[in-house]
């Protein structure tokens, strides 16, 4: 009989909501209780340093190019020995959508996402983070990585001294 089926369906629904009345709420009372985000959570962006304390960023503009909302801008400069750095580096967190494409694009692992999601400000101009706001003292998620140790461009060490890099070959002495 259809009506018995319908009444059964109604009572099933009522029983489910009755059970849920006594279930513990899933609400997190935000300012008092805070959820610990996962380490790979994508929130506030930082600029990390290499293990020797130097800036990792080489101002290659790849993050800026990858950014879908164009919130990253910088001016590149060259230090002594040809080492590149950002003269100024600016992230507009009012525009940032925390997609993480900049961190993926970064060849030197300089730009990284952190789990710190509480960056609300009263004034929107306070969300404009300059280089000194972005730069942190540590290495972030890749503690041992130093870009210049792996590349053979000969800026910080002579050519061929990079980690995992072979000595330069003297092509004239290479005999069969």
């Amino acid at each position: 009989m259809a009506i018995i089926k319908d009444i059964y369906a109604l009572l099933t629904g009522m029983w489910i909501t009755w059970k849920h009345i006594f279930r513990r709420p899933v609400t997190i009372q935000y300012p008092e209780e805070k959820r610990q985000p996962y380490p790979r959570y994508r929130a506030r962006i930082v600029l990390t340093r290499d293990p020797d304390g130097g800036e990792r960023c080489v101002a290659c503009q790849l993050c800026s190019a990858a950014c879908p909302v164009d919130c990253i801008s910088m001016q590149s400069a060259e230090g002594e020995g040809g080492r590149r750095y950002a003269e100024w580096f600016r992230i507009n967190f009012a525009r940032c959508i925390f997609c993480g494409l900049c961190a993926e694009a970064c060849p030197t692992l300089a730009i990284q996402m952190t789990p710190d999601f509480e960056i609300c400000k009263r004034d929107i101009m306070d969300l404009l983070y300059e280089k000194e706001d972005l730069l942190i003292d540590g290495c972030g998620k890749s503690p041992d990585y130093n870009f210049y140790r792996h590349t053979g461009i000969g800026v910080t060490q002579p050519r061929g001294n990079g980690a995992g890099e072979n000595r330069p070959v003297d092509v004239r002495s290479l005999m069969p």
Binding site: H20, I21, R24, P25, V26, T27, Q29
Partner: peptide, 10 residues
């Protein structure tokens, strides 16, 4: 309150 409890809220 009761609606919140039904929906697992506070």
């Amino acid at each position: 309150k009761v609606l919140a409890w039904v929906q697992d809220r506070k």
